[in-house]
Design a protein around this nucleic acid. Structure first.
Lengths: 301, 301
DNA sequence: GGAGCGCTGTATCTTATGTTACGTATTTTG
DNA sequence: CAAAATACGTAACATAAGATACAGCGCTCC
């Protein structure tokens, strides 16, 4: 039998001029990035890997040689070329030229770049916009001094640090605990059932700090626990939403984050960022002591 | 462990050969542009034209071929090469690599380019600014279609959903699992030791989806686990950083979030927001089926 | 479970890119 | 003004880059 037609994409749609703009359906594809993410669904595994690596740090990988590109994506060179061909380019240099042109346009008008979010992703992701707003709002109501105070309180290591959260916020407590446990000793995340934490109360005293995450609907069990801890003189740092969990009345420090987003769920993203900021601030404060500790931990690996 | 990720990107040494080592005194040369404008005075006419052409639309001309560069500058190819050699580079490719590295650093932190816009009032927390940039940047590389695809994949409930994360990202997996478990059945977060997950592999098959969170340093145990799951035909959705965890090679869908912030730690905030967005999208998709399910759950309280 | 198709990598080939040698032009200097 | 030194371009070269052919393999669909 004679060789039948090669895989269909090779030189299928390239009759026209090189400068043609790519159209997909009714929507004009402006950037190559869009073109890729539009077609990534209909790509075979190898080419998809190429696409993902390119998008991950766009457009730099595309400016390198085919060999480097293929190595970065973990595929072979021909796969890269097939990938480029599928996007509609005649050859690799043409693809690179397109990327360079695009880059030139970007670099020339930095203004468009900042406008882009509202242009491309604006209407597309009201979720993102709301989240960004939440963060700005949250930090607007949160002075640097306040953050520094809390960081100092947590960093002064007179006692132990306990962290706990509610149904959806407990992962935030875990996240924070995972970091704090590295830069200082005696950090404990309270997991499991209510009865288990309750028993830990006997370990807590005036010198200790309890970090609680609680947004609505505020959990009864957490409130009870906070109250008991407060009675024992434990300092409470509360992460909550703008409507303030009842725990606020027991708390030494209260961080109120915005949580409203156009979704069925509340967003904990703002609180997450506050937590990260706090972790960063504490790490800086404990740098001297922490550096040794981190070295020690490293050597244990 | 602690990765100091921000500024110090460009660590390439320009020209160690330096036959005529024009020592630049005490001032460190940060960018190639500076290097050029520093030495442009002591250049012959032809090379000066090359320098001016490059600076005129920096750095794009330098990324093209020698022939194109020479044509743009109106000089011959050897002049370009001599120009590059005078800057201290061994050869043209090395020069191009340096330009690309520089460009990568620029593109990575858009904050440095648009120096402190009056958005929040300038001296606000650089941590917050970096985080907001990370999110915008992350979503810029993430098309709505891609998100919708992933949401659809997770929402089509032909099989089970498993979630797992690394040392610092496992809380993200938990957070997502906590929400998904409400809107659909058969959602499992894989906790505890490696041996425990491994045993769960026998429950996983082609119809199932595994959501993995993995940012650097990428954990060996996770990679092994992902590989085994992949061999069993499990569809993998990967949340990673822009450098892409090795798991990307097994993944059906890859979400690359920006993680660089001016802190000792990497930030998972951008990935957190993507996760929330995904949760929201899935909730919307499963509204019909989910509504009943949520009512049922309510009545169980 | 088998047949067909399509995707992917290895090896080979071809192109064009960067590099170098050398002669001419231009500038500099005594 | 003359001679030397330096700069520049033309043309040939070597190398590395992109492109292609082919075969193995896995996957899907009967």
């Amino acid at each position: 039998m004679i060789s039948y037609s090669l895989p269909g994409f090779v030189k299928r749609e390239f009759g026209k001029t090189a400068e043609q703009s790519h159209e997909v359906g009714k929507t004009m594809i402006a950037s190559i990035a869009e073109l890729i993410s539009d077609r990534i669904g209909s790509m075979p595994a190898g080419e998809r890997r190429a696409a993902q690596t390119l998008i991950a740090n766009y457009p730099l990988t595309g400016l390198k040689t085919v060999a480097e590109f293929s190595a970065a994506a973990g595929v072979s060179s021909p796969t890269i070329l097939r990938f480029v061909a599928r996007l509609g380019f005649q050859n690799y240099p043409e693809f690179q030229s397109a990327l360079q042109d695009e880059l030139a346009a970007q670099l020339q008008s930095p203004a468009t770049r900042t406008l882009n979010p509202s242009a491309t992703g604006g209407a597309a992701s009201p979720m993102l916009e709301a989240t960004l707003d939440n963060m700005r709002e949250t930090f607007r109501h949160l002075s640097d001094k306040q953050l520094a105070d809390i960081a100092a309180r947590l960093a002064e290591r007179r006692g132990k640090t306990f962290l706990i959260g509610g149904r959806f916020t407990d992962p935030l407590a875990r996240y924070m605990a995972a970091h704090l446990a590295i830069i200082q000793p005696d950090v404990h995340h309270l997991a499991g059932q209510e009865s288990i934490w309750r028993d830990r109360l006997i370990d807590m005293g005036k010198r200790d700090v309890l970090v609680i995450f609680d947004i609505r609907r505020y959990q009864e069990s957490l409130i009870r626990f906070a109250e008991k801890a407060h009675e024992r003189g434990v300092q409470i740092v509360l992460f909550t939403d703008q409507w303030l969990s009842p725990i606020a009345r027991f708390a030494r420090h209260v961080i109120a984050g915005r949580t409203a987003v156009p979704s069925a769920w509340d967003s904990s993203a703002a609180l997450f960022v506050v937590a990260e900021t706090l972790i960063g601030a504490m790490t800086r404060q404990l740098e001297a002591a922490g550096a040794k500790r981190i070295r020690d931990l490293e050597s244990l690996r």
